[in-house]
């Protein structure tokens, strides 16, 4: 009987392992289309930037950043620098203290986990922009 019980426990553990793994893996699910920028950040001693598309597209149509501000629609194709931002380019067009917070609030943008590479994240990945 004890052998039988051990078998049942093993069976139960095996059956439960799959959904538990699924849940654990989903716990670290970044929001779809979040962009990590880390070309310069960690080299300069700050956390990588996390740019949330979802937050910005509630407020602005795609054309605002991808035409008016000149962001290429390709992660890594834009040479975003703090000097440029302070001069009002890229993020600096809005993050100027009037439309959105200023560059003095470093941690609000430089909010990512250290060690992440530049790229676009989230579920449903393809071989596309997320992996370039």
């Amino acid at each position: 009987m004890p052998v039988c019980k051990i078998r049942h426990i093993r069976l139960l553990a095996a059956v439960l392992a799959v959904p538990i793994l699924v849940i654990v893996s989903l716990q670290t699910q970044a929001e779809y289309a979040d962009v990590v920028l880390n070309r310069n950040s960690e080299k300069e001693g700050v956390r990588p930037v996390v740019y949330p598309h979802w937050f910005h597209r509630i407020r602005f149509q795609c054309r605002v950043c991808h035409t008016e501000l000149g962001f290429e629609m390709r992660v890594g194709a834009n040479k975003v620098t703090m000097e440029g931002i302070i001069d009002g380019k890229f993020c600096g067009a809005c993050h100027d203290g009037e439309t959105a917070w200023t560059v003095e609030n470093c941690d609000l943008c430089h909010s990512g986990l250290p060690g992440m590479e530049t790229g676009i994240t989230g579920g449903h990945k393809t071989l596309g922009p997320g992996n370039w």
């Binding site: 970044a30 929001e31 979040d34 941690d107 909010s111 990512g112 986990l113 992440m116």
Partner: peptide
């Protein structure tokens, strides 16, 4: 669980040690 959105602290992307979160 999947149908809900992760908080920034738990999403595996933001640094949970960042007080600005």
């Amino acid at each position: 669980v999947y149908a809900e959105w992760q908080t920034l602290k738990e999403d595996g992307l933001h640094d949970p040690l960042n007080p600005a979160l």
